[in-house]
Amino acid sequence: MQEKVEAQNILSMNSVEVLYDNVILAIKGVSVQVPKGEMIALLGSNGAGKSTTLKAISGLLKAERGRISRGEITFQGADITEALAQKRVEMGICHVIEGRRVFEHLTPDENLTAAAPRGMSRSTLNAEKDKIYAYFPRLAERKNSQAGYLSGGEQQMLAIGRALVTQPKLLMLDEPSLGLAPFLVEEIFGILQKINKDEGLSVLLVEQNALAALEIVSQGYLIENGRVVMHGTAEALKSNSDIQEFYLGGGETDFHNVKHYSRRKRWLS
């Protein structure tokens, strides 16, 4: 039974510890599973270790002199704990890093071209681009202007589109809602949901905006101080009093209907 569950996870991260500069322990034994074709959220406040968790999965830790000191990460059954970032992209993990980070001096069209995997034929690339422009019509309108001058929402769309060109099986997004107006967050999350549904793309979403994230994901993990302190379905998390109090902004809690969660016990999980 246990093995069957394992096989359904596209990504499995077990008790991973990350050190920066060999001294700073950024995450302390984080375990996260992403079931194939599902959307999963990592929630938590600033500095909790969400971004580090994504970088451990994508291999971008190395660029910031971080490393995985304990634990293992498997992707589609293969151990990728030590694999190079480039190799992981080839395997199908793409990480949309925080702050959009489009190639500002390139046009949106060139941004998409830049992400084309080695050996992708021109016709496949054009088909990928057409698909991305269909998901994000705003990008199609501005595909030949300079990417640095796009609006924040358009840049986020471009960052997601650029990741899609790599033909990922697991798309990881770091704070895509950051600094965007609520209607844009809704638009982008709606498109993510559509891509997830149409193509069976698995998504791991890091968000501070728990309210928006829990609307589209099936499960969520809550990370605090480098540890997973809570894990459950989106419904369970939404109705949890702590989550409501700290992350959803709801003040009133109905203690009769919600099981109280002892915060001290979290550290044992």
Binding site: S58, L60, A63, A85, Q86, V89, E90, C94, H95, V96, I97, R101, V102, F103, A114, A115, P117, R162, A163, V165, T166
Partner: peptide
Amino acid sequence: MASWSVGI
């Protein structure tokens, strides 16, 4: 960093 993130 963005280049690395898309496998360049």
